[in-house]
Design a protein around this nucleic acid. Structure first.
Lengths: 196, 196
DNA sequence: GTCTATATGCTGATAGAC
DNA sequence: GTCTATCAGCATATAGAC
């Protein structure tokens, strides 16, 4: 594609999104000004409005992209039919994927209240679609007699909360590798649903 | 104690704290103005500064009080020496106590980044003291051969994340009572640490 | 595509009247 | 103890020059 002289739109756009994500994660959506985002990118505040209609849309786009990418990545995972293997794969996938994107995860979980009602509803649909992936596994295992899950919805929420919690304390410099953490959590998850 | 005519300080103070907690939980610390808090209470913005030196102190006091109350309430629980019973009691206590104070819990977990460095450090000490209560139980059970917890710190964080997660989805109008949720979660926690 | 300049309004906090 | 009035600054978003 031809590009006009002096045009930076193909690089400035992503830079704005990256800067906004980092700042929203660190300080919170309401506490970050458009001027701060612009300063991080190296442009003036007015220039941001070439790439987003307003601040709210910027937040929504970041959250929507994160959840869409998450769903696509999980659906691209090679998984078999065995409930035990599927649950273990989900637990490991969830932790490793989330540990790789701490800022996006943080914003997607903490800034739900900063969304307008319409945008919140759209994000909720994506979040539920992801939860349903896990609930299907738990139901399948329960039906097969492999898991003991008296309430599959409750167990789904419990497992996801436990797995996502890793992001609140994990530090790259710590004593455990992501792989090790993922394995230890996968074991706890399996036991929690009744696998000895 | 004698009280001056026209003085409302003994009622306005708590009202300010209650309004601030509710608004901070709903919209986030940075998104709530002192004028909004004052309007909720029914006074003018300037009057708030008779009860708090600034907005930051108001947030810190709310978080500190919540964690101090939480620790005191747990320490007042009657618990025996059996690791199995102690862990079950902790899980049930954590869920029931937290479900009763959704706003305080929400603020204490979501607004950590809104604290100054000094205040953050003081809150972290309280939070760790509470986590240590659970870790002691897990270590005791591991030593007694009742639990299978290869990494007690990791298991502590996993269990707390799972239990606290209830607050993100529980609704009073829902199909499950707090007692029922607490029991179901206690079972999952016990299984997660290796109790059959 | 980015800049500067600007509009309109809200922010936390303080001073002084009552 | 509460009010009104106010300060100085920063917010989002837009208009028009280059």
């Amino acid at each position: 594609m031809a590009r006009k002289t002096g045009s930076h739109s193909d690089i400035t756009g992503p830079k704005i999104r990256a800067a906004a994500l980092r700042l929203f994660a660190r300080s919170g959506f309401a506490a970050v000004s458009m001027r701060q985002i612009a300063a991080e990118v190296g442009v003036q505040a007015g220039a941001l409005y070439l790439y987003t209609p307003d601040k709210q849309s910027l937040l929504f786009d970041l959250m929507q992209s994160h959840l869409q990418d998450l769903l696509a990545a999980w659906r691209a995972q090679p998984i078999g039919a065995d409930p035990h293997a599927r649950l273990k794969a989900f637990a490991r996938f969830h932790i490793l994927y989330h540990l790789d994107r701490p800022d996006a995860v943080f914003v997607a979980y903490m800034e739900l209240r900063s969304l307008t009602a319409d945008n919140f509803a759209r994000i909720e649909i994506l979040r539920r679609a992801y939860e349903d992936q896990l609930e299907d596994i738990l139901r399948q295992g329960q039906a097969a007699g492999v898991f003991q899950v008296p309430d599959s919805k409750l167990a789904t929420l419990a497992v996801i909360a436990m797995l996502t919690g890793v992001n609140t304390w994990y530090r790259r410099e710590g004593r455990l590798s992501p792989e090790r953490v993922a394995d230890l959590y996968a074991d706890m998850v399996l036991r929690a649903v009744g696998v000895p």
